[in-house]
């Protein structure tokens, strides 16, 4: 059976690189499953879970915002963060989320910069996605 070459790269490191059977991506317009011989696609992804299926096993990564390029059985995922779900520290994420929320309230009360608020909201979205994944995994 044909396989897909999956590559996940973040600014800090190459997070994943292997031959896989299929992958499910958190696309901006909903979940997106990619099987071998998929048509060429280029789309944005949002913070969420990326599922990798490889020889009957399933692996999950939490990814941030980014882009996916699918072409000739090669999937390149460019994202600002890719973390193994086991590595997520729940306490830290919660704390970061709370800090961002406080900062937004404070910013909104006074004079605020749209870009700053947008950046903070992005942190919250990402943290929420991480927490959601972590909690679901634990069941």
């Amino acid at each position: 059976m044909a396989t897909l070459q999956l590559e996940i790269v973040t600014p800090e490191k190459k997070a994943y690189s292997a031959e896989i059977d299929s992958v499910v991506l958190p696309g901006v317009e909903g979940e997106l499953g990619i099987l071998p011989n998929h048509v060429a696609v280029m789309t944005a992804i949002k913070p969420g879970e990326l599922k990798i299926f490889k020889s009957g096993k399933e692996e999950s990564l939490a990814v941030g915002e980014g882009f996916v390029e699918v072409k000739d059985n090669k999937v390149s995922v460019l994202t600002d963060a890719a973390i193994n779900i086991e590595d997520i520290d729940e306490g830290k994420v919660e704390e970061a989320m709370k800090r961002a929320q406080d900062a937004i309230e404070k910013a909104k009360a006074g004079e605020h910069d749209e870009a700053e608020v947008a950046a903070l909201s992005a942190i919250i979205t990402r943290s929420a996605a991480h927490l959601h994944l972590k909690r679901r995994k634990r069941g």
């Binding site: 600014p11 060429a40 696609v41 280029m42 789309t43 944005a44 980014g66 390029e69 072409k71 460019l78």
Partner: peptide, 23 residues
């Protein structure tokens, strides 16, 4: 043209690619 792509994605892609190249 080989890619299925939206206009909105295109403009995002451009900004993202600029940030990547800058980095």
């Amino acid at each position: 043209a080989a890619f299925e792509i939206d206009d909105e994605v295109l403009s995002n892609l451009r900004e993202y690619a600029l940030a990547n190249s800058l980095y």
